[in-house]
Design a protein around this nucleic acid. Structure first.
Length: 624
DNA sequence: TCCCGTAAACAGG
DNA sequence: CCTGTTTACGGGA
């Protein structure tokens, strides 16, 4: 990592002397006055540095042509475009670049395209003259805080859980999401008005956590919503590991949240879950009519829900975008690899903005950072991710479904799965094991909570192709298959459906009345309750053969199949179907058998080695 | 207003 | 103590 690349920053700028902690800006003396003139003088800023910087950025950016551009925002990668700085004096002590830009560069320059916080610091110190001095402990305070702040704040940065020992998370650039400048609307950084609500929400949760930790409403939803909140939670969990299955906990898993969720889309995960069909074309902007898309009646939703939806929407947007991209754009992206394309990196890639949430997954395998896990795929391969970067991600997922199409509409739905997949992919799994997302979810806590969702996918060693990747190449048939089958047949067999649905539902938007109904039933289902538990365990426990993606593994698998039902599920079903199909297809495509092990994280612990059987259990999923 | 940088409170590890 | 997240504030454009 050493700075292989050039710092884009200007070398010119020297470290200005500043008060220790102050990073750059002087305490208060006028910044402007000081800065500009700084030793460097405007010139430097204007002249050199900028130029260089731009180049770099651009180059990088170039890598991802479409993507970047694509984003609606326009701002291109945050970097290049972002730095609008005109040319005159530098804005900051170190130059015109913003922290976000610097961070982006740092990440881009890294071989893997991901860095830990500490590495970012290092990069700064090494690369940016201004920070050279400060690298050390003392001085570092302020600017490091700012770095962290920026990482957390911007959508453009994705945090990927780093399995290596104690290391901190990897930070990557969000291919699509990035654009800081103007992100679509996300509340990312600034929160202003609208965001207030969200915040409120957030806070509420937090507060709760803090306070009691009750899960009660978890989402705050409690309120009326019946379920609204759940969804989000679910995913969150899945993201990482397992989290507690326990019912109450649904909310609780703060960890999960943190981990996987991209700041912006807090709930995004939810989307993925259900994501429905977003029509490819559609992207609404901010507000999508979800209803239309999903088909759910939004109207019913309480305000809270609404918000949730919004968030979800955001995610969706992301998805949508991705999808679009696929379609349209990115044929094949970049062929070559990026400068330092590490395979793994790509693997890791976070995916689209929306997916950010997923990204967390993390690969089990990565030992350390730069890993070159590569193993398998050529750069290109990864690329799927790589190359395209973002787009691909999406693509892979989405496109794929070639034939199967069984149902017409699936495509759209595809999104669902994909998301999951992505997540998986993202994680980049390492070799042997596979990643998976398991989600367990507590959904429905109170009730009987039966709903659980777990998605697990296992990636076989390397993923062959991007597309496959998505699926994780080796999805387990077990899980998937069953599901898939079911799903496909759902119509026919609704039975499981319910469960399935439940599970899914959890991911899905809950509010629809229909859902409610389902839930109800689902709740009632005898089996369910237990299952739920069981399932969870399973998931977490790992190993289970059964569990599959949806967490419901065993449960539904074999058993029940009969439920009468005429639930309204159809609607859902469709969605489900899609997903399932998707999955199935994918699986099928992949063909591989597999076991899944889930473990999202297994890591060191037990090996995931072969047997899913035990191994998983080893984990402790259940935290508590 | 929006974006950015900075400080800081907090929560987990 | 480090990492992350989130608020809040102030300044510049």
């Amino acid at each position: 990592m050493e700075d292989s690349k050039v710092p884009t920053i200007d070398p010119d700028f020297e470290p200005q002397s500043r008060p220790r902690s102050c990073t750059w800006p002087l305490p208060r003396p006028d910044i402007s006055a000081v800065k500009p003139e700084g030793a460097d003088g405007p010139e430097s800023a204007a002249g050199t540095p900028p130029a260089d910087e731009d180049k770099h950025e651009q180059q990088q950016i170039a890598l991802e042509p479409e993507k970047v551009v694509v984003s609606e925002g326009g701002v291109v990668a945050g970097v290049g475009g972002a730095t609008p700085r005109k040319g005159s004096s530098r804005r900051n002590a170190w130059g015109n670049q913003s922290y976000a830009d610097l961070i982006s560069q740092a990440i881009e320059n890294s071989p893997e395209k991901r860095l830990t916080l500490a590495q970012i610091y290092d990069w700064m110190v090494k690369t940016v003259p201004y920070f050279k001095d400060k690298g050390d402990s003392n001085s570092s305070a302020g600017w490091k805080n700012s770095i962290r702040h920026n990482l957390s704040l911007h959508n453009k940065f994705l945090r990927v859980h780093n399995e290596s020992t104690g290391k901190s998370s990897w930070w990557m650039l969000n291919p699509e999401g990035g654009k800081t400048g103007k992100a679509p609307r996300r509340r990312a950084a600034s929160m202003d008005n609208s965001s207030k609500l969200l915040k409120s929400r957030m806070r509420a949760k937090q507060t709760k956590k803090a306070a009691a930790g009750l899960g009660s409403a978890a989402g705050g939803d409690a309120d009326g919503g019946a379920d609204s909140p759940n969804s989000s939670q679910q995913f969150s969990k899945w993201g990482v590991n397992s989290s507690s299955p326990s019912s109450r906990g649904s909310l609780d898993d703060p960890d999960m949240w943190t981990s996987f969720r991209p700041r912006t889309s807090s709930n995004a995960s939810t989307l993925s879950g259900r994501l429905s069909p977003i029509a490819p074309g559609q992207e609404d902007e901010d507000d999508l009519p979800e209803e239309g898309l999903l088909g759910y009646p939004t109207g019913n939703l309480p305000p809270t829900l609404t918000e949730t939806l919004m968030e979800e929407l955001d995610l969706i947007d992301g998805l949508t975008l991705m999808t679009s991209h696929q379609g349209g754009a990115s044929p094949s992206p970049a062929p070559p690899a990026p400068p330092t394309p590490l395979p793994s990196a790509s693997t890791l890639l976070p995916r689209g903005s929306g997916f950010a949430s997923f990204r967390q997954l993390q690969p089990p395998g990565l030992p350390q950072p730069p890993p070159s896990q590569s193993g398998g795929q050529p750069s290109g391969t990864q690329c799927g991710g790589n190359n395209n970067k973002p787009s691909n991600y999406g693509n892979s997922l989405f496109n794929p479904l070639p034939g199967p199409g069984s149902q017409g509409g699936p495509t759209q739905y595809a999104a669902h799965v994909p998301s999951s997949l992505e997540a998986l992919l993202t994680s980049d799994s390492p070799p042997p094991s596979d990643v998976m997302m398991t989600q367990v979810d507590p959904l429905m806590p109170s009730p009987g909570g039966a709903g659980v969702m777990g998605m697990g996918v296992a990636m076989a060693g390397g993923r062959p192709k991007p597309n496959q990747l998505l699926m994780g190449k080796g999805l387990e048939s077990h899980a998937l298959a069953p599901l898939g089958m079911q799903s496909q047949h759902l119509h026919h067999h609704l039975p499981h459906s319910q469960l399935t649905l439940g599970m899914i539902l959890s991911g899905m938007p809950q509010d629809s009345p229909q859902l409610s109904a389902l839930k109800s039933q689902h709740t009632q289902l005898p089996g369910v309750g237990p299952h739920h538990g069981g399932c969870l365990s399973a998931n977490t426990g790992g190993g289970l053969p059964g569990l599959g993606q949806f967490g419901a593994p065993s449960c539904f698998l074999p058993n029940q199949d009969r439920l009468p039902t005429d639930l309204d599920i159809d609607m859902f079903t469709e969605n489900l179907d899609c997903d399932v199909e998707y999955i199935i297809n994918s699986e099928l495509m992949d063909g591989e058998g597999i076991d899944f092990d889930f473990d999202p994280i297994m890591q060191s612990g037990q090996s995931y080695s072969g047997p899913s059987s035990t191994q998983s259990s080893a984990h402790n999923w259940v935290p508590s």
